[in-house]
């Protein structure tokens, strides 16, 4: 057994508990005597039973930030609890937009460093060892914290599998966390939400992901990726190069900076396979790559590599799939 107590942050989307939080609860059960979930926003009690079923002995309510961005108030509440001597030995945070905000603020408030890009956690005596990918995930560094205070880990989604267990009968108790003194750090407010029109499955949950890269040549050619994704019931993705070029939004990005995907099939079209991209997709169960450069690094991980021009191969593939449906 590693540590006494781990807190797992639960960032809900539309009130639902995402897989990333359940993955962290599952892993935390094997590393700590007590696992507690930290949640925020309206009606935290509504998800207590579900979190309990994955091993949370209690659910700690960090309050409802309302329209404020969550980084400052959630970090403030956790730091206030730590200051009162009620803190955990480690905090596990999923690597999301808000998760990273909370981690950065919490680190500064507690004066504790934070280890990010974590893909593995192991017990080490009465502490924890973390594994995190470096150099685009081609190498794995193992690290541990020294000194007093909670260890802060930002974990990449899909690093662990989620399985129910370790729970007690009924929903665990919900307890409020104290509020932190936020000063002007809490003044960033959301005035409007915009949902991008997306049909089909989410990028990080899709069974098939079709991604495009610089080899497409132009933003217009991305239409082929959209069409292929639709035909395969999958989600369209992108390399950093074409996101940087403004062809598609940031949310499409697969890689170290973007999403981590583990679909049954990953179809990489015109993507050379920079390490920055590979770290986000190399754990796909099957990888198919189309690239005209036979020396492209993407072919070193592809189960099927097609050396060819995406402008010739993809239209024919689209026609062939249409003919079947």
């Amino acid at each position: 057994m590693g540590v006494d107590k781990i807190w797992v942050l639960v960032e809900r989307a539309d009130g639902k508990v995402p897989p990333a939080a359940l993955e962290l609860l599952t892993r935390a059960r094997d590393l700590a005597t007590t696992v507690e979930a930290v949640a925020w926003g309206p009606d935290v009690a509504a998800v207590a039973a579900e979190l309990g079923a994955y091993g949370a002995a209690a659910v700690l309510d960090a309050g409802d930030p309302g329209d404020a961005l969550v980084g400052a108030p959630v970090a403030g509440a956790i730091a206030a609890a730590v200051a009162l001597g009620n803190g955990p030995d480690a905090v596990l945070i999923a690597a999301t937009y808000d998760g990273r905000d909370i981690a950065g603020r919490l680190s500064a408030r507690l004066d504790r460093p934070v280890i990010t890009n974590v893909v593995g956690l192991e017990a080490d005596g009465d502490g924890l060892l973390s594994e995190h990918g470096i150099f685009g995930g081609t190498q794995v560094a193992t690290a541990r914290f020294t000194g007093a205070g909670p260890a802060l880990f930002v974990v990449r989604p899909k690093s662990f599998s989620a399985e129910p267990g370790g729970g007690s009968e009924g929903a665990p108790q919900v307890r409020p966390l104290p509020s932190g003194d936020l000063g002007s750090t809490n003044t960033a407010a959301i005035v409007a939400h915009h949902a991008e029109e997306r049909t089909g499955p989410k990028l990080d949950e899709a069974d098939v992901v079709v991604s495009g890269g610089r080899g497409l040549g132009s933003a217009d050619a991305y239409a082929m990726i959209d069409e292929l994704a639709k035909l395969l019931g999958g989600a369209p993705g992108a390399s950093r190069a074409i996101v940087d070029a403004g062809w598609v939004p940031y949310a499409y990005q697969v890689g170290q900076t973007g999403k981590t995907v583990k679909p049954t099939v990953y179809l990489a079209c015109g993507i050379s396979g920079a390490t920055q991209h590979m770290v986000g997709m190399k754990n796909a169960k099957n990888i198919i790559a189309v690239n005209k450069d036979q020396d492209a690094p993407i072919f070193t991980v592809a189960d099927l590599g097609i050396v060819g021009d995406v402008h010739k191969v993809l239209p024919k593939l689209i026609e062939a799939l249409k003919a079947r449906s």
């Binding site: 989307a13 961005l69 999301t96 937009y97 960033a188 407010a189 959301i190 005035v191 409007a192 939400h193 915009h194 949902a195 991008e196 939004p249 940031y250 949310a251």
Partner: peptide, 10 residues
């Protein structure tokens, strides 16, 4: 940028 699209923040 958000998971769903984007938020306007002031």
């Amino acid at each position: 940028q958000t998971e769903a699209g984007y938020d306007e923040v002031t």
